[in-house]
Design a protein around this nucleic acid. Sequence first.
DNA 1: CGGAGCGTGTAGAACGTTCTCCATCCGAAC
DNA 2: GTTCGGATGGAGAACGTTCTACACGCTCCG
Lengths: 349, 349
Amino acid sequence: MTPDSSSRNTKRVTITDVARHAGVSTAAVSKVMRNAYGTSPAMQERVRTAMAELGYRPHAAARGMRGRTYTIGVLLDNVRNAFFADVLDGIHEELQDSEYTVLIGAAGFGADEQARTIRSLVDRQMDGLVLIAPGTPRAEVLATAQATPTVVIGHHDASDVHDSVVDADDVGAGLVVDHLVALGHRDIALVAAAGSRTGRWQRTPEIALADGYLRAMDRHGLAGHARVHHAAYSDDGGHAAGLALLSGPDRPTAILTGADVAALGIYRAADELGLSIPADVSLVGYNNTAIASLAPVQLTSVDQAGHTMGATAARMLIERVEGRRDRSMQTTMTPRLVVRRSTGAPHVR
Amino acid sequence: MTPDSSSRNTKRVTITDVARHAGVSTAAVSKVMRNAYGTSPAMQERVRTAMAELGYRPHAAARGMRGRTYTIGVLLDNVRNAFFADVLDGIHEELQDSEYTVLIGAAGFGADEQARTIRSLVDRQMDGLVLIAPGTPRAEVLATAQATPTVVIGHHDASDVHDSVVDADDVGAGLVVDHLVALGHRDIALVAAAGSRTGRWQRTPEIALADGYLRAMDRHGLAGHARVHHAAYSDDGGHAAGLALLSGPDRPTAILTGADVAALGIYRAADELGLSIPADVSLVGYNNTAIASLAPVQLTSVDQAGHTMGATAARMLIERVEGRRDRSMQTTMTPRLVVRRSTGAPHVR
DNA sequence: CGGAGCGTGTAGAACGTTCTCCATCCGAAC
DNA sequence: GTTCGGATGGAGAACGTTCTACACGCTCCG
C-alpha cells in the first residue's frame, strides 16, 4: 500500500513509444538512429524530434542482443599506477565526441582475477577491448581477440588477431643507462617486474626493458656490473627491492626502475636506510607520471606519452569495431628521458 | 574467401544448449542459475555439470533485458585522486566472492560529463550505482536513484531514496585545527573545493569541511584569522591556490586542504617561492592517501578510511539490490589525524 | 475414492532492439 | 499504358534470458 521501493518502476521510453509518437514504425526509428540506408530527410526530422520530445535513450542491453552496445571496455591491473591514468585520459579524449562510452574493469595483479574481468567485459558485450599489459596467458587474450576487437597496450608480441600499442622500452632503458654513465656511474642496477613467462608472452614491457638495459650496459663495457632485481610495480614492491639492493655490501650507485610507483618505494627504502637521493644513490623511474614531477619528489624518469598511447589505442580500436580496417597493426612510441633532481654524479667512496 | 574478420563468429554457448545437453527445459536451467525455488537436487546437479562441460557463461545483455546484469557501476570524477583508489579497493574486496562485477565510469570534473556517464551506466542496466561525490545536480541523482539502487559517497545530504556513506569532514577539520593550534599556529588557512551550490547539494564534503574549520577556529578564538580559499582538488588546483596564498604579504603559517592531491600542488608552489615545509609553512592534507606517507613527502593528513567506506558502500548497495532492505540509511565514518613531517611549530617572524 | 495441496518441471510470452526481407509508390522509359 | 527500377517505409523474426502460469504426479486426509 505504501509507495515503497516498488516505485522503482519508472517505465523507460522505448523505441516503440518514439515510433508511435512520430507515426512511423519501430524499424524506421531504428534506421534513423543508426543512420542506415532508406530514410527520407523528412522522416529523419520527425523521428528525431519525437526522440527529443520524449527524452528517449536507447537501451544498451537490448541493443547488445543484436547489434552493438557502443561500449568500450578497458582492463587494467590497478588504479594506483598513474601511468594508466594518462592512458585512460587519452582514451577518453579520443572517444569524447563519439557515441561510445568507456567502462573500466580494475582487476588487480592476479592472472585469474584479470581473466575473470576480461570475461566479464566480454559477457557484457563490449564492442571493443583495450587491455593494458594483461597478465593473463597469451592464448586467452588471443581467443578473446578472436571474438571481440582488441588492442593490447604494453606487450610487444604482435599478433594478426589484435592490434598493439607499445613503447620502445628497450630504447628507454638505453637512454637511462647512457645518462647515468655520462654522469659517471658504473654500478647501475635495474628493478623490473618479474614478467610472467608462464603466460607465453615473449616480450612483455619488462622483458624489453631488461633487454635494452643489458644491451646498453654491454655497449658501455659494463656487462659485468649489470644486475636485474625483480619487484612488483607498486610502492611495496619497490620498497622491498630497495631494501634488498641498498642494504647489501656492494650497493649500486644508481637504480633504474620500470615504473615510477616502484621508484617511490625505493625512495622510501633509501630514506629508511639513511641514504639520500641523489647524493648516495641516483634513482630513475619510468612513465614520467605526475608524481615524478611533484615538488618534493623530482624524479628523473622516462616519458612514455601515455596520453598519446591511449588516444592511439582508442582510434585503432574504433577502426576495427566499425570494420574500417581488417588487418592488425602495431604502433610503437619512442620514449624520452626527463632529467630531474634524483640523478647526479656518484659519490666517490 | 579469406578467413578474415568475419571469423569473429565463435558461437556462444547459450542456455538452450545447456538445456538440451542436460535434457531439461531452458526454464529449468534458468532456475538453477538463479537458484530459484522449484528445483530438485538431482536436476541441479545435472544442469551444473552440463554448464561446466559446455563452458557456459551467461549473456549479460540478455539477462539485462529482463532481470539483473550482476554489474555494479561506480562513478568517479578522476582516477588520479588516490583516495578513490582506496574506495575502489574496498568495493572490490567486498564484492570479491560475489557474482557481481564492478565497472568504473571515470567522468571528469564537469557536471555534464558526469551526468552523461551516470546515464550511460543506467542505460547499461547496472544493478546498482556507487556515486563518489557526484557533481551533478541533486535532483538528477535523486531521479536516478529512484530507478536504480544507489549509494552516494561524500555528500552529507541524506535522502530516503538513496543510501549515503560519508566521512565526518567537520570533525576532521576540527582535529587539524586543534593540532595546528597546539603547535602554536594562529594564522591557519583552508584550501577547499568550491562546491557547486548550483547542484542544490546542501552539504558537500567541502561545505562540511569549511564548516568544521570555521567552528574550530571560532572555538579557539581565531575566527578573525580564518580564511577559505577555493581550489580544485588536483595538483594544478592546489598549485594555484598555494601561489595565491603564499605570495601575499599576510601569508598564513599553516594551510589545511581538503585533499592530499591539492596539498602536493601547494607543496610545489611553496617550493617555487623558496619556502620550505614545515619550517616556513605547515601543510596538512586530507584523505591520507598513499602519497602522503611517501618518503619524500611525509604529509600530515586526515585518514578517512576510504577502504572501509568503499566496502561499506558495496555492502549497503547489495542489500538494496537484493531487496533485503527497503529503507534508506546513512553511514558516517570518524576521521583520524595522522601526524607526519609536514607540520611543526610556526617560525617566529 | 475424490479432492486438496505440495513439489517439480515446462510452455511460452515478454523484454527492446536490429535487420532481412518484402510491399508500396512514383517516375521514367518503352 | 505497360513495365521496370529505385527510393522509401514496414512486418516480423530473431537475439538469450527471466518469470508467470500452468500441468503433472504424488501424498495425505476426510
